[in-house]
Amino acid sequence: MPGPSKKPDLKKLLELWVDSSLKVQVVVFFHDNPGIIETLEGLAKRLGTNVDHLRKEIAGHISLGILRQQKTDGMTLLVYDRRKEADVQRFIEHEMSKRTAEASAR
């Protein structure tokens, strides 16, 4: 008999779904520290990686809207969008329960 349904955890799901460890690291870092406002260079330092690699890896986060880019005083800042994360989490939860229902119907 299946146990009680458990709320899917975005962090855990992303760890399974994304294709690079740095992408996961970025999401987990902002999930744990949502108030971080940093430049790309500053974020690369905090994560111990190089700027070019990070720029490539966060393109998906930006297009998904989890990370926003904001220009100020000649700097490009990265800001985490908490509301967008909540949207993504709701979407994943919805998709997961849909797939679980489909699997048990089979």
Binding site: G35, I36, I37, T72, D73, M75, L77
Partner: peptide
């Protein structure tokens, strides 16, 4: 409340 972690340079910007 909001918790913001940033740098002095960013806070002073503009």
């Amino acid at each position: 409340a909001r918790l913001v972690c940033t740098t002095p340079k960013i806070l002073l910007a503009d």
